[in-house]
Nucleic acid binder design. Structure first.
Lengths: 199, 199
DNA sequence: TTAATATACGGAGGCAGCCTCCGATTGGCT
DNA sequence: AGCCAATCGGAGGCTGCCTCCGTATATTAA
């Protein structure tokens, strides 16, 4: 059985200080924030940081796992929503907001989803699984094109989130995500403004 | 009358060796390739590299300007194409291929397009301009939704290119770009499914 | 050809970040 | 109190960025 010896008091204290400072640092400087800086601000030697979190990814994983779980939970909740496509869109939209919280997180998440050897892969798996139920339902009810996969959808979301960061002002991701859902063709059943551009 | 004094022979030689090695290095290791390594391989001191190219961006700009010009030219040529939307798609598709040549190039280009202070901004400007003519034509002829801007379109392309790199195998970007054009809704009156030529 | 000089070269050196290793310290237990 | 395994901390080795300046050389004038 996995008997876990309780941590020594100082170890636990440092562990928690490190997580706090890491959260701050990543939010402020993005995922590339300096680890030595995190250790410094936590009032801890660099060696201590590396003992608790052997890699940057390990540190990020600890911080992110809860978020991924929350997204999975949200997906399950949205299965109760009456409109399958709207539910899916809502889920993706929230997921996009979450991956926008610090710079570099989108890249990280997209990598984790496609690279099985990533430490974050496992953390993401439950989330993808939960999301795929929303996807399947939307397909089954004829609201989502049947030839698109969950992975493609997630990737498109991450792409929109990534690109949203390059648009001035907030709401960029939402706008792009909407475009992706609607497509780019002008079409009759979509109301189009009357006036052709002058010129 | 910008009389340009000819470079000293050794200077010109080094300049060219540096560009060659930079091309190699960026292609192999992405835009973050070590500058000291480039200098080393070019058989030149690091100081010499920095004299010719004060920043990494300056070096990249020199390498990329020709590419951007080529893309602008391609856009102009495609104005002769009979089908406006197909022409636009073809242009974007080629542009996406070009930004996939080395890792980090997509990010770089997207940044350059949105940040006026970037050294690459000027280089991109003509390309965006040329592309916007394709966009306007497609709108005018009612094939492209009128509420989307050239910048959004370029950003969506870059997003697709970025995301394509996270899909296994080649052709990821093409597939995603097609999805973006067609939209994600299931719909009876869509003629052709988006998708990579599975053969 | 030689001398003068503007031009260009090269790498040492200072800084920061990554990560490892191991002697010093200390919490927890008897 | 005293022991010792668990934990700490940071020096040190490495890489990469970038600047500065003494040295070397291509070019030109004599």
């Amino acid at each position: 059985m996995t008997e876990v010896k309780p941590m020594r008091a100082d170890a636990r204290r440092n562990y928690e200080r490190l997580l706090e400072e890491a959260q701050r640092a990543f939010a402020e400087h993005g995922v590339e924030a300096s680890l030595e800086d995190i250790a410094r601000r936590a009032g801890v030697g660099i060696g201590t940081l590396y003992r608790h979190f052997p890699t940057r990814e390990a540190l990020l994983e600890t911080l992110l796992r809860a978020r991924f779980d929350a997204q999975a939970e949200r997906a399950r909740a949205l299965l109760a929503h009456a409109e399958p496509l709207a539910a899916l869109q809502a889920w993706l939209s929230g997921l996009g907001d979450a991956t926008g919280t610090f710079r570099g997180l989108v890249e990280l998440t997209a990598d984790a989803l496609s690279d099985e050897s990533s430490r974050l892969y496992a953390s993401c798996h439950a989330m993808r699984e939960a999301g795929s139920h929303l996807v399947e339902r939307a397909k089954r009810e004829g609201e989502l094109r049947p030839d698109v996969t969950t992975d493609e959808l997630l990737l498109l979301l991450h792409a929109a989130s990534w690109a949203g960061g390059h648009l001035p002002g907030p709401g960029g991701m939402q706008r792009l995500l909407a475009l992706v859902f609607e497509g780019l063709r002008a079409s009759e059943h979509r109301e189009k403004p009357a006036g052709a551009p002058a010129g």
